[in-house]
Design a protein around this nucleic acid. Sequence first.
DNA 1: ATGCTATTGATAACGAATCTCATTACCGCT
DNA 2: AGCGGTAATGAGATTCGTTATCAATAGCAT
Lengths: 130, 130
Amino acid sequence: MVTMKRNTWQREAVRNALTQSEGFVSAQSLHSALRDAGSSIGLATVYRALGDLAGAGDADSLQQDGESLFRACTPDSHHHHLICRECGTTVEIKADAVEQWAKSVAAEHGFTEPHHIVDVFGLCRACSST
Amino acid sequence: MVTMKRNTWQREAVRNALTQSEGFVSAQSLHSALRDAGSSIGLATVYRALGDLAGAGDADSLQQDGESLFRACTPDSHHHHLICRECGTTVEIKADAVEQWAKSVAAEHGFTEPHHIVDVFGLCRACSST
DNA sequence: ATGCTATTGATAACGAATCTCATTACCGCT
DNA sequence: AGCGGTAATGAGATTCGTTATCAATAGCAT
């Protein structure tokens, strides 16, 4: 028995908060959201939990502006996001063609276990008109 | 004439160093490389020059492990990357189909100025076999 | 050359993420 | 249920990449 994993309410809290979050969230914002909701969870714990989730494949992560953003990863509803860089509005988009492309391009170069980051940023209709 | 751009040896030094670098380089390593070569260039200047190059489309940038990496970018060659999450090896990939898809999906939802993040991670051939 | 001002660079400041370590509490065992 | 070991927690300190500050420097038009 090399490593033993324990179940704590903190891990579950992070998992829940992440699942209920829309789009990508930073560790810090998730932490303050939890605190605002009355939780006494620590920041370091949120970082650890998110790292574990990402490592276990239960969360997707991407890096933007020098910070890591996380998103709950539901295996049966893979999709990407169209995000407004002004107001943060996000629209879910499906892209089967892109999924196939990512897989094939990875295989083409001998890469295994492909995992892709595909997100489109822009200005939404409202923000474009201002 | 609202903004005037001046040519300094520092900018050229960064441009040259970046061009001569193999693969992606961090601002800090580029800075110490320049210092090691006898240059007295400052760190902040390297950051500024790299930011300008990236903004002007003369350099590609990606974020990994919380730091930004840069590489000289030959103009008119927009491409994405296939990155090994183990050793960091990167392969340039072209994806015209994805470019078109990003544009159309953005327009479809009323988004303007589309800008997309498309990167594929995986294990390269060498790292897969270990 | 001269004046204006963009640029530089040493350093301070900032922020995200990690580390430390004493305390807590999960979980197998009896 | 009670115990013991030990993984996990969390407040604070620390690391590290990046940006801001601001006096000094140097590019460029005249």
